[in-house]
C-alpha cells in the first residue's frame, strides 16, 4: 500500500472493527436504548466539532437579525426617496442606496426575516411530507409504493410558475410568507420523497435491519428506529441544500413577477430587482446576495455537521 492516506484509514478501520465485533450485538444494544440515546450520542459528537460551532453562531446571528431587525438599524427600509437613487455609502447608510433610493443596509437587515422564514418553513414542510411519503413507499413497497410514487410523479410535473400563479391568486389580497411557502412546498416535496424512497430501499435489505426484524421488532418500529436514521444522510444533505434553493427560488418567483408582495422586504425580491441594475450597478446585487449566501452557507454547514453526528458509522471516527 503505497498511498499514505489509505494506510492510515486502514488502521483506523482496524481499530474500529475491534469495537463492535459481532453484528448482532450492535442491534441488541440499539434495541434496548431509548431513542434519546441516539440524539445524546449525536450531541456528544457535535460538541466536539468546530464546524458546528461556527455554523451555530452564524445561524444565531441570522435568526436574531430576522427576529429583531430594529436592533441592527434604525433606518426604515421602506422609506425610499428617488433623490437618493443609487447613492454612494455615507454615514448611517453603510451600503449606500438602491435604484428606488432605499437604504440597502436597512433592506438587507429587514429582508432576513422573510427569506429565513421562507427557507426554514418550506424545508420543514417539504421534509415532513417528503420523508413520510418516501419512507412509506420505499419501506412497504407494493401497492403503497405504486400509488404514492405515481402521486409524486404528478406533483413533480406541476410547473412551478403555474402552481405559483394559481396559489398566489387564491390569496391575492393577503399574500404572505405562508403563500410562498405553500407554493414552494407543493413544488418541492416530491424530490425529498424520491430521495427518501431510494435511501430507504437501499437500507431496508441491510443485514442489521434483517436482524432487527428477526429479533422481533415491529415493522413500524424498525422503520422509525433503524431504517430512518440510516437513511437520514441523503435526506439531510438534500434538505439543507434545498433550504438555500428555496430562498433563491423565492427570488426567482420575484424575477417572474409572482413572488412576495412589495410590502414585504426580502432578499429574494431585492435580488430580482437588482437584476435590472446588473449592467450598470452590480454592487446593488452584492449585499442581498451576499447575505443570502452566508445564510445558506451556515445552514449547509450545520446540516453537514448534524448529518455526521447522526450517522452511527461516520460518528465512530
Amino acid at each position: 500500500m503505497p498511498d499514505a492516506v489509505s494506510t492510515r484509514k486502514h488502521q483506523e478501520h482496524f481499530f474500529a472493527a475491534l469495537d463492535d465485533t459481532p453484528l448482532a450485538a450492535v442491534d441488541t444494544v440499539d434495541e434496548e436504548a431509548a431513542p434519546a440515546s441516539l440524539w445524546a450520542d449525536a450531541w456528544r459528537s457535535l460538541r466536539r466539532r468546530p464546524l458546528f460551532w461556527i455554523s451555530a453562531a452564524l445561524i444565531l446571528l441570522v435568526v436574531t437579525v430576522a427576529a429583531f431587525p430594529s436592533l441592527f438599524t434604525s433606518v426604515e427600509p421602506r422609506f425610499c426617496e428617488l433623490r437618493n437613487s443609487l447613492g454612494e455609502p455615507s454615514a448611517g447608510h453603510p451600503f449606500g442606496f438602491d435604484r428606488q433610493g432605499c437604504d440597502i443596509y436597512a433592506r438587507t437587515v429587514y429582508g432576513a426575516r422573510a427569506s429565513v422564514a421562507v427557507g426554514v418553513l418550506t424545508t420543514l414542510a417539504v421534509v415532513l411530507i417528503g420523508a413520510v411519503v418516501g419512507a412509506i413507499a420505499g419501506f412497504y413497497g407494493g401497492w403503497f409504493d405504486s400509488v404514492l410514487s405515481r402521486i409524486t410523479d404528478i406533483f413533480f410535473a406541476i410547473p412551478l410558475v403555474l402552481a405559483a400563479i394559481v396559489v398566489m391568486q387564491m390569496f391575492r389580497d393577503n399574500k404572505t410568507i405562508t403563500t410562498v411557502v405553500l407554493v414552494l412546498g407543493v413544488f418541492g416535496w416530491p424530490q425529498i420523497a424520491r430521495i427518501t424512497r431510494g435511501a430507504v430501499m437501499s437500507v431496508k435489505n441491510a443485514d442489521f435491519i434483517t436482524a432487527a426484524k428477526a429479533l422481533g421488532a415491529s415493522r413500524v418500529m424498525t422503520l422509525i428506529r433503524h431504517v430512518m436514521p440510516n437513511a437520514a444522510a441523503p435526506i439531510i444533505v438534500t434538505a439543507t441544500v434545498s433550504l438555500g434553493i428555496f430562498i433563491v427560488a423565492e427570488a426567482t418567483l420575484s424575477f417572474l413577477g409572482i413572488g412576495l408582495p412589495p410590502q414585504i422586504t426580502s432578499w429574494g425580491a431585492d435580488i430580482a430587482k437588482a437584476q435590472v441594475s446588473l449592467r450598470s450597478q452590480p454592487s446593488i446585487l452584492f449585499y442581498p446576495a451576499g447575505a443570502l449566501a452566508l445564510t445558506v452557507l451556515s445552514f449547509i454547514m450545520m446540516g453537514d455537521a448534524v448529518r455526521d453526528a447522526l450517522d452511527p458509522k461516520a460518528r465512530k471516527r
Partner: peptide, 15 residues
C-alpha cells in the same frame, strides 16, 4: 457548489 446554489440562476446565466 455553495456559490452556485446561493446565486440565482438568472444572475448566473446573465453573467
Amino acid at each position: 457548489s455553495l456559490v452556485v446554489i446561493a446565486v440565482p440562476i438568472f444572475v448566473i446565466g446573465f453573467v
